[in-house]
Amino acid sequence: MEQLLFIILSVISVAAALCVIFVRNPIYSVLSLVITFFSIAGHYILLKAQFLAIVNIIVYAGAIMVLFLFVIMLLNLNNTENQEKRSFVSKAIAVVAGGLLLVSLVGLLKGSVLTPTTGGISSDDIGTVQRLGKVLFTDFVLPFEISSILFLSAIIGAVMLGKKDLKDH
């Protein structure tokens, strides 16, 4: 049952992820990315990380992708003719960037060995909010607080950029 679900979810997520890059229309790209996020959330649930799954949907599918869609609709990036006129330089840069990503991924995964999950890790309540909250506020309290400060500064920065005239305030 779990294996079957895993196969179905994997097929959906890989197919949708490929759609993101190969589809010409940016709106379809964004929508396939949303489908990818949903199937990845399904994978999280299979790994018993329900909280992570639902947060993935709330943050990525629910907020960030809506903003993406918003921007693409407003800019109306629908004319596909622009894509033919890419200069040689931008293509070369894209190839180099993609190659670097590949190299770093290969370097990262080269030494790693796939270890089967031990009994302690896959206990049923591993991904619950209670467990996660306890860990976040005891063992990982410093990184947690630092990331919250990072978010705060990002919010303040966004507000400052959003203000048209700073001298009024």
Partner: peptide, 10 residues
């Protein structure tokens, strides 16, 4: 509750 948030946001 989080599930409700998620569905509302989509």
């Amino acid at each position: 509750m989080l599930y409700i948030f998620a569905v509302v946001s989509t």
